[in-house]
Amino acid sequence: MNDALTVGSHTFQSRLIIGSGRYADYDQMLACWDASGVDCVTVALRRVDLDHKHEERNLIDVIDRERYTILPNTAGCYTIEDALRTARLARELGLGTLIKLEVIADEQTLLPNATATVAATRELADEGFTVLAYTNDDPVSALALEKAGAAAVMPLGAPIGSGLGVLNPTNIKIILSRASVPIIVDAGVGTASDVAVAMELGCDGVLLNTGIALAQDPVQMAHAMRAGCDAGRRAFLAGRMPRREYAAPSSPVAGRFTT
């Protein structure tokens, strides 16, 4: 099934985007990427460790750029300025102009600062970035981000790293019905059924990290996430049957020979 995800000028064959954090090692990470079928992966930017001259494998060297598009994030940024700095550093690193924008409001919940995210989106879009903006499951901020120039809006399913799934499907549906840019559920996805739920709602994609990296068997879970994404997407495209309050027999009533 050719059913690509388009964000700005970028086209991805997989509707799943996964991270590079919290894996045991690079080999496990690469095995999970392979199993999940993704072609876009997220990374973070951090200070070089000055105590060790970096001769060991750097993440940049590990990623096959022919196969994977790198989506750098601004994770850990609490101000507009820090998010802008991080995006510019990522571009200077040669990662292009895709940016997963996060402006976090609170350390304990890692919930986003919606107004700061809108302001940062406007600035980065003006600078030519393709902004995928992480936000709350809030239709008002999602539409504000779209208006500010986000190429995709990424409402959380649940708090980052919580694995609680899609906590407010009603709000996600409202966002989907009103937005014109792709909607990608980002954060809170704990297992394959969570991906399927998001995709069945009609989301354009799902971004997750910890759900695979912290599974007991991450590679197995990466396969499962892929299957969940495919199942949910196909169910959405198929269009589910209407719900009803009472039973309806699936075998004919007419012609019964039993009492």
């Binding site: 990374v43 930017l45 993440l59």
Partner: peptide, 10 residues
């Protein structure tokens, strides 16, 4: 001065 590189993240 800040010298930064890529690390794993979500």
């Amino acid at each position: 001065i800040e010298i930064v590189t890529l690390v794993g993240g979500g």
